[in-house]
Design a protein around this nucleic acid. Structure first.
Lengths: 192, 192
DNA sequence: CGACTTTTGTACAGTACGTTCCAGAACTGG
DNA sequence: CCAGTTCTGGAACGTACTGTACAAAAGTCG
């Protein structure tokens, strides 16, 4: 009971997520958050408590919608290598097409010293582990079908791939050299 | 002529670098910089102009002292693989030993949206290219000696390694799992 | 020594920050 | 329709921020 909310919580968190993604934690002001969500300060603090808690909520939302694009690519038909390549190429395309170079919010949150509390680090880590497991499963499938080399365990192969993948996104932050990024992709895939 | 500086410019930039490294650009205050350098605001602004310019100076200083440890490891005797392994293991050790998880300042600067001007991105990019070239040279040596596979070009191999290396440092920001990081290392090396 | 130049510390300006507070609005259950 | 509850928008608060002003200090050169 009481007066009902005039806004949609999820939409507000989503709008906040976009700002944090673009500017990082510290550089995002409460004013930015009010403008992007369309809420007054009262509503914002009443609903989310603090800038920090809203940041956590934004990261949790990212953990829901962020992997959707990834998973959609990885679940397409085709060989394991082709699907992993598609994932990486897609990231390159996204990064190169974005003049702001926002990259991946989970990685940004993991790297951003100002916003990194143990909770934030844990949220980012969880997403890392989730990707690791997804890839690990694919590696196991590829190995048992004979497509991939079995000299490494699936887990080791997954961790190796994941690392190259994150490195790719770091490089994507500062380079325009698509060919260099494609080198990374082909180098990574030929190692599997 | 005029009154001489009472402080050492390099030492001041170094102190500033440590703060930016620990807290990131936006979260570092001019007060922090005064305290860490021991300078008053007057001296600080007289000598460096602005927080942003000091940040650039700090990153330039990092580009001098940061690679020293890396190069020292890579120039030691031994096979190419052993030296690359030593580099990665050293990074894992450094990251795990640091409760603040400062990581690599060049990577942090590349990722930090708040401090990333085109100049900063370029400075970070330059360091990335420098490492790429160093590794590329090692790859060429390893390939011509027969130690490493020649199925990839040295440049492609270097870019691939570099990417895995950066990914390793991203993972090192949020995990305590040394075994996972060692998996990355061995997975990367076995691909060369 | 004395004109000139640069550095130093501090006080200050002006703004912007995260958060709290509150009066009134909007709704519910009785 | 009234008492109770929650939400809203914005004003208000205290603090902290980057950057400037300036007078005194500490040198140099003739």
């Amino acid at each position: 009971m009481g007066r009902p909310r005039e806004f949609d919580d999820t939409a507000a968190v989503h709008a906040a997520m976009e700002v944090f993604w673009r500017k990082g934690y510290e550089a995002t002001t409460t004013q930015d958050l009010c403008e992007s969500t369309g809420l007054g300060r009262g509503s914002l603090y009443n609903a989310f408590g603090s800038k920090r808690q809203l940041y956590e909520a934004a990261l949790r939302r990212y953990s829901v919608i962020g992997p959707q694009g990834q998973l959609e690519i990885l679940e397409r038909p085709g060989s394991v290598k082709d699907r992993l390549r598609a994932l990486m190429v897609w990231c390159v395309d996204v990064d190169m097409a974005d003049p702001e170079r926002r990259g991946c919010l989970a990685i940004n949150a993991a790297m951003d010293a100002s916003g990194r509390t143990s909770e934030i680090a844990e949220l980012a880590h969880k997403q890392f582990v989730r990707l690791e497991q997804t890839i690990c499963h694919m590696m196991a499938v590829g190995q048992s079908s004979g497509e991939l080399s079995s000299e490494r365990s699936p887990l080791q192969a997954a961790r190796f791939f994941q690392s190259a993948y994150y490195g790719l996104r770091v490089l994507g932050k500062v380079t325009d050299d698509r060919a260099a990024l494609l080198d990374v992709i082909e180098g990574t895939l030929s190692a599997l």
